[in-house]
Amino acid sequence: MIEFIDVYKSFNDHEVLKGLTFKVNQGESFAIIGRSGCGKSVTLKLMTGLLKPDKGKVIIDGIDITKATPGKLAQVRKKFGFLFQSGALLNSLNVGDNIALPLREHRELPEPKIMGRVSETLKRLGLKHLEHIMPGELSGGMKKRVSLARAIIREPEIILYDEPTTGLDPIMCNVINKLIVEMRQKLKITSIVVTHDMNTVFMAADRVVLLYQGKIISAGTAAEFKKMGDAYVKQFVLGEAAGPFQDEDELKLKEKSGE
């Protein structure tokens, strides 16, 4: 179980999270949506201890990782697979070695089995026979899928997907959405999906939260979100320019002028 309790995080003077609280149960598929820059990626980094909150607790299966020793943190991190928004492939390793890295490092499988697993995972993501290509030679969407392969290869307990379908064609989006559903159904993996893609939310998420101004402003099941009357949710789901959401820049200007 993953729990955020009253988490605050700011960078310099910029307050990103202001009292974020939520809970994700084991085996659940949880979507976080919100406007660009609202702190979704920061939330995932707090969850894996890459960032430390200024205040509040981040509890993973009963362990508060904000206070964990480096050794303990490394142990907790083994539960995670993380698809970074930027992909974050190691540019000095080829695709096959990148994907095999988490398995190899922790000696979880004998070497001959690792390469089999790698090509199987690549095939699943429509990337057959790419093992020997360097990441620099891949397209943006291909990089994303290779990173996804690296995140799921160990079949970890929890997978964090940061915008898994951004930059992919509609057909591939569907493949990825199905894969997220499958990972949860077959392997009972807890998934946390950050996305702007409403299809992903409706297809793959059990529960959704909408993040705005450092807090969760609405939460519900995916079905509830579809027909929710809440003005914020409506504007977001339908993608309308006019509505209650205010631009961050405008807000900052208002703050400065003391409104």
């Binding site: 890459l50 490394a74 991190r77 930027s86 974050a88 988490p102």
Partner: peptide, 17 residues
């Protein structure tokens, strides 16, 4: 470059020091 492109973060999340 690895640091600013999140490769170091990726290593840490994989529990690779």
């Amino acid at each position: 470059t690895m640091k600013v492109s999140e490769e170091i973060d990726a290593l840490e999340v994989m529990s690779i020091n």
